[in-house]
């Protein structure tokens, strides 16, 4: 079943045509990786799935984006409901200046959960899922800023998981981290795909190879090639893909 499907999506930043007719489908409980040179539109495309582009003035989107078969640009869709359903993790860890506990509980609270025990359960569960529980369980009341960068990023993942989304978007989640933290995040992604549909943007080809089931290669706002990760890396059909993965540009 397709978790995300887009049909002929065009996106304009004012006059600038940033996405040029992208159609693709991402399967449920799979990891899809987006690769491509800087500025090709990966993040822009990713942000379409939870309508984060709404926040930028002068953005215009054409085409259809379906998540779990629902058109997310439909007037009846409340954007905050959508974002509850589609979690996102950013390149730089961005915890709130609150305690570790409150960071994870934030999504629940803003979505109206008041039940204390439910919140406590959910925080613990998410922290465990994000493989952070053991490291922080004794200092849940401490400020999130006291964690290391890698821990902060896992905290942000836990924060996204706490509201039980079905899709998890990750925009270069490990690019600001050291190798050990990166490995931890990759491990985590592998475990999470059991329950979530994951889309990850990465500049690291090895990472894409390690964690993803399918990979999409973007170039200048176009989707050039989309295939099973193994296939794409071993026998790319398009010359541009070939050039990129062999490091000839990018």
């Amino acid at each position: 079943m397709n978790s995300i499907e887009t049909k002929d999506v065009h996106l304009y930043y004012g006059d600038f045509h940033a996405l040029k007719g992208i159609s693709m489908a991402m399967k449920k409980n799979q990891v899809t990786a987006f690769i491509g040179p800087s500025g090709c539109g990966k993040s822009t495309y990713l942000r379409c799935f939870n309508r984060m582009n709404d926040l930028i003035d002068g953005v215009r989107i054409e085409g259809e984006i379906l998540i779990d078969e629902v058109d997310i640009n439909n007037k009846n869709i409340l954007v905050d409901d959508l974002r509850k359903h589609v979690g996102m993790v950013f390149q730089k860890p961005n915890p709130f200046p609150k305690s570790i506990f409150e960071n994870v509980a934030y999504g629940l609270r803003v979505n109206g959960t008041k039940d204390k025990t439910l919140i406590e359960e959910r925080v613990e569960k998410s922290l465990r899922q994000a493989a952070l529980w053991e490291e922080v369980k004794d200092k849940l009341k401490k400020s999130a800023f006291e964690l290391s960068g890698g821990q902060q990023q896992r905290l942000c993942i836990a924060r996204a998981l706490a509201i039980e989304p079905s899709v998890l978007l990750m925009d270069e989640p490990a690019s600001a981290l050291d190798p050990i933290s990166t490995a931890k995040i990759e491990e985590l992604i592998y475990e999470l795909k059991e329950n979530y549909t994951i889309v990850i943007v990465t500049h690291n080809m090895q990472q894409a190879g390690r964690v993803s089931d399918s990979t999409a290669f973007f170039y200048l706002g176009e989707l050039v090639e989309y295939a099973k990760t193994k296939t794409l890396f071993t026998s790319p059909k398009d010359q541009r893909t070939q050039n990129y993965i062999t490091g000839r540009f990018g």
């Binding site: 984060m52 905050d80 509850k84 950013f90 730089k92 961005n94 915890p95 999504g107 803003v110 996204a160």
Partner: peptide, 14 residues
């Protein structure tokens, strides 16, 4: 910083 706002909005906060 903008990232705090974006982080919150991405969690479904209004």
């Amino acid at each position: 910083d903008k990232s705090f706002r974006i982080g919150s909005l991405a969690l479904g906060a209004t």
